[in-house]
């Protein structure tokens, strides 16, 4: 039972971390919106899915890569990957802001309760995934291979592959940039102020709607970046991938303490590793079961998640 786990420990760990970093970025989308609005943006999973399509559209339609094209090299490789990343982030950010403007802002303006917004989020999630389903005829879309998956080196028997390395380094960098943005920038301070106390923030002259829009934008950028890494590693997307990935990332956000950006980081990595380890030890059929047992246990002993909310809720 444990032979695979022991034998392939480092390989599994690297795969788990790479998967975890994708979760981290999606979890960031959930956690930032929750921090500001105290609402779970269920549409975030579909924003991720749209991001994956953004990355594929860039390589396939802009650079005309197809399944038989040779992978790019050198400067071209960097350019294509960068444009793909940009496209995925832009796609997702635009969708995210549209969701906020079309579905949530009007409800807020009318002073509806959070439950109505929550239902509206579920509705948006369906609209987004069904639209993509119709556009793609429910078929999976394969991504052309842009990056040759070279095995760079082996450490303790684990392969360090180029795509895994890029995912870990770049996703880590994007996470740090966004985290610093929220921590240090003027807008970031405004976001945190709204998250602490909305009324007081308003009294201080903070434009609430602007803060919320920026939050959705930043959350969308992070989620879109996750879409890019997903496409680079798995070279595949489909209208319904958002559900599984989104649920996992949401779980990661809750494990880490929803509303807490660093919590999203540790939650994401934790979940990536837990999934891979559980699949290796117990069999992939036990993956989901294990994860949700862990989630229940965490919430039983630490109801606010491992890292708790960054800010104690000040509202009633």
């Amino acid at each position: 039972m444990f032979t695979v786990f022991i034998d392939q420990f480092w390989q599994l760990t690297i795969s788990g971390i790479a998967l975890g970093f994708i979760y981290v970025l999606i979890a960031l989308g959930y956690t930032m919106v929750y921090g500001v609005l105290r609402m779970i943006n269920f549409a975030n999973s579909e924003i991720f899915m749209w991001g994956t399509f953004g990355a594929i559209v860039a390589s396939r339609d802009l650079f005309r890569y197809n399944q038989t094209t040779e992978p790019a090299t050198g400067g071209k490789l960097a350019l294509v990957l960068f444009i793909q990343l940009f496209a995925a982030m832009a796609f997702a950010a635009v969708v995210s802001v549209i969701v906020e403007l079309a579905a949530y802002r009007r409800l807020r303006a009318r002073g509806t309760n959070r439950l109505a917004t929550l239902i509206s989020a579920i509705g948006m999630s369906m609209v987004l995934s069904e639209t993509m389903r119709l556009m793609t005829d429910s078929r999976p879309v394969g991504s052309p291979r842009i990056l040759e998956k070279v095995i760079l080196t082996e450490v303790w028997g684990a392969q360090i592959r180029l795509d895994t390395l890029i995912t870990i380094v770049a996703a880590g960098a994007i996470f740090i940039i966004l985290e610093r943005f929220v921590k240090l920038s003027r807008m970031g301070k405004a976001i945190r102020a709204v998250s602490m106390n909305e009324d007081a923030a308003k009294l201080m002259g903070i434009n609430l709607n602007r803060v919320i829009t920026v939050t959705f934008l930043v959350g969308g950028l992070a989620t879109g970046a996750a879409g890019f890494f997903y496409v680079t590693v798995y070279e595949y997307t489909k209208f319904n991938i958002g559900f599984t990935m989104g649920l996992a990332a949401f779980t990661a956000a809750v494990v880490g303490g929803i509303g807490n950006i660093r919590g999203a980081f540790f939650g994401g990595v934790f979940l990536g590793l837990a999934e891979v380890y559980a699949s290796a030890i117990l069999g992939t059929q036990w993956k989901a079961v294990t994860i949700f047992i862990v989630l229940v246990l965490v919430l039983l002993f630490k109801p606010n998640g491992l890292f708790g909310e960054a800010v104690q809720q000040t509202r009633a």
Partner: peptide, 14 residues
């Protein structure tokens, strides 16, 4: 619905 097959591949290798 699986897209990450790394645990299965680890088993194959072991």
């Amino acid at each position: 619905t699986t897209t990450d097959f790394s645990p299965t591949i680890a088993k194959i290798k072991t």
